[in-house]
Amino acid sequence: MVNTGFSIGDLHFRNPVLTASGTFGYGAEFEDFLDISALGGIILKGTTLEPREGNPYPRMAETPSGMLNTVGLQNKGIDYFEQSIYPAVSLYDTNVIVNINGSYVEDYVALAERIDKLDKIAAVELNISCPNVKMGGMAFGTDLSSAREVTRAVRAVCSKKLIVKLSPNVTNIVDFARTAEEEGADAVSLINTLLGMAVDIKNMKPSLSTITGGLSGPAIKPVALRMVWQVARAVKIPVIGIGGIMTSDDAVEFLLAGASAIEVGTASFIDPSASVKIVKGIGDYLAAKGFSDISEIRGYINRNI
């Protein structure tokens, strides 16, 4: 029997496969396609203090081996979350994680305080890397002192496990990971989308309503892997790898590069059951290689460098 479980501090995950925020709704959208309890955890669509209508259409452009999006954190706000979403997601037999976003440090703090009171939420993912909002979001995740300030403020009010989701749109992501660790983050997740754009040559205008948007999918996997490898060597807290993971082979690459767990994102749009297939594939890989515990392969490539 192969153990694929991992822990962030005393929070245990039955396997290392989580679903990336904004790609898995609130879970219910996927119930026809998979058993949510087969996942290590789910990270819910980004939540803000106030309801947000998000950005205008068009919000999406297909690109080679990937897609650009500019959804802009459309969500119904924390009041609605508490009343209408939390009762449903609290029934899931897996770790449910809330991804929080804000325009100001105070927004993040207020949200973290509210989430902290919800028993069935296992952890908070602090999103300082959304590229599609005018204020906040990535602005926090691309400036070291802002990243430090928001992580410190949220840490002070958050008794749950705190995962800081990092932006790849920086010169040295390791600095941001170290800063998160210094300020008490329990884990870091990376990468959020890369800022990109596409042009509609037929109509001679940008493809997205906001001109630029976040690139995801296999196109960004090599960049994500490189950053995960760099960060995993630099911090002691668990690193959760994200970026273009479509198959269990992709997931294993991240684990071998040093990730303790991974998030499946855009893959769920193409195959809504991709995440559970990846769970199985990781177990099969470990068994075929003769390992009994997933921790044995974490960062394994460093032995061969």
């Binding site: 904004g22 790609t23 669509k45 259409y57 068009p58 897609m67 999006n69 959804v71």
Partner: peptide
């Protein structure tokens, strides 16, 4: 008909502006 990502209500890309919001 709108440009669509997932088709199952997860990506929120194919929104249409309605009297009930997006």
């Amino acid at each position: 008909e709108q440009l669509m990502g997932c088709g199952i209500g997860a990506c929120l890309c194919c929104v249409v502006d309605t009297v009930k919001g997006n």
